[in-house]
Design a protein around this nucleic acid. Structure first.
Length: 399
DNA sequence: TCTGGGGTCCTAGGACCC
DNA sequence: TCTGGGGTCCTAGGACCC
């Protein structure tokens, strides 16, 4: 079963503020150059879509109401939703903040069958949070996801195994979870437009053109998918932050000030959840949107803001910039959980760790960089205040 | 008042080692 | 009288997802 909230962020905002109900609204980020994150269905009627910039969205719908997103609200709701799913099965995969997979194979009979569970979940969520969701039920995740995608909004659809073939026959491959614009274009070049055609395509042809995923593509066309519901929370593989700058900047010291800011955000999140990483990457985007990433490997696992910052700034130092920069990103990857902190043999190490812990605690409570190193303040002074980025992150690493 | 932010997975090429 | 085969690690880039 796939449970997908309808226009999740927008629905939550409409619930929180009755004035917004029934109106075309869109949730955005907080920075100046933001885009639409979610549009209410009232706004979608006018053509407002996720990813549009504000200018485009306002052009499509002049009386569109813009609401700045509040991630904590959505994360909180997501956690509450997860508890509801868990009443029906322990096998719940919280795939994203607004979407979950439930394996009800062995539990549905306890609740009167799959459809009854879907109806119950929809009702509980509607009663409790006032928001709609769409439920897809199928023999596997791929088709359950499809069932919910094609039944939005406020839908419930059970695709039984005997109906899979018929539904896929004329469905465009792009509609399948995992087939994006590039693959569907390449398939179209082979004369494959529908899932039916994909399922009948030559396996060797697909293998030749797409390598290892060729086989999977054919199976997907046939509606076959063996991906299980992964209810165990997996360890994250990277922790990163990026931000589009209020204005494009070319000054390296200014860029470095943002790198520091982002390094602190990354380091603090890593420390909070006890992760260290061995690779640091810096992503930059030019005004024309060309985007590139360079990374470096550390000699040891680390999560210190200093080390992350220094690595990222070193990378910057090796780059010849051809233009101003519009986006900067810092990411820590190749990460692992820290061992239960074994006290260091060295007094100075111990004191340093303790100091960092205290600084983090203060900053968690009072905000980024309320307590920081004097050397950092000197840098920041040059460039004025840097506002924190709004962050529609996955739900994994929230407190 | 042009185009966000956070992720995962895969491929390919080069350096280096035995 | 032309240069193997097997492997790891590293970096960069791209496709895809929400």
């Amino acid at each position: 079963m796939c449970v997908d909230m309808d226009a999740f962020f927008a629905s939550v905002e409409q619930q929180a503020n009755p004035h917004l109900r029934g109106k075309p609204i869109a949730v955005t980020g907080s920075s100046a150059r933001t885009v639409i994150t979610t549009a209410s269905y009232e706004a979608r009627k006018f053509g407002v879509k996720t990813g549009m910039n504000i200018y485009e969205a306002k052009k499509a719908c002049p009386h569109l109401i813009l609401v700045t997103g509040d991630n904590e609200k959505y994360t909180h709701t997501c956690k509450e939703l997860t508890k509801i799913y868990n009443r029906f099965t322990p096998d719940v995969e919280v795939y994203s903040i607004d979407e979950a997979f439930l394996d009800i194979t062995t539990t549905h009979h306890l609740f009167g069958g799959p459809e009854a569970i879907g109806i119950s979940i929809k009702k509980i969520i509607k009663d409790r949070f006032g928001i709609n969701c769409t439920v897809g039920i199928a023999p596997n995740i791929l088709i359950a996801k499809l069932a919910s995608d094609i039944s939005k909004p406020d839908g419930l659809r059970w695709i039984r195994i005997e109906n899979v073939e018929g539904i896929l026959e004329n469905l465009l491959v792009k509609e399948l979870w995992g087939i994006g614009s590039k693959i569907s274009e390449r398939l179209a070049a082979l004369g494959i437009k529908t899932c039916g055609e994909l399922g009948r395509a030559s396996a060797s042809l697909l293998r030749n053109r797409f390598g290892i995923i060729g086989e999977t593509l054919k199976l997907m066309g046939m509606g076959i998918c063996s991906r299980p519901v992964i209810s165990d929370e997996e360890e994250p593989k990277s922790i990163g932050h990026s931000m589009t700058l209020p204005k494009n900047i070319g000054d390296r010291d200014e860029i470095k000030a943002y790198i520091l800011k982002l390094s602190e955000m990354v380091g603090r999140r890593a420390r909070r959840y006890r992760y260290s990483g061995r690779k640091v990457s810096l992503t930059l985007r030019y005004p024309d949107f060309e985007t590139f990433t360079k990374q470096t490997t550390l000699s040891q696992y680390a999560n210190d803001t200093h080390i992350i910052y220094k690595s990222a700034a070193d990378i910057l130092g090796r780059i010849r910039l051809r233009d101003k920069i519009r986006l900067i990103g810092v990411c820590l990857s190749d990460i692992k959980t820290d061992k239960p902190s074994q006290p260091s043999l060295f007094e100075i190490e111990r004191r340093r760790k303790e100091l960092l812990n205290i600084m983090d605690a203060v900053n968690d409570r009072y905000g980024d960089f309320k307590l920081t190193w004097a050397s950092y303040i000197m840098q920041e002074k040059d460039t004025g205040v840097i506002s924190p980025a709004w962050r529609p992150a996955g739900i994994r690493l929230f407190a």
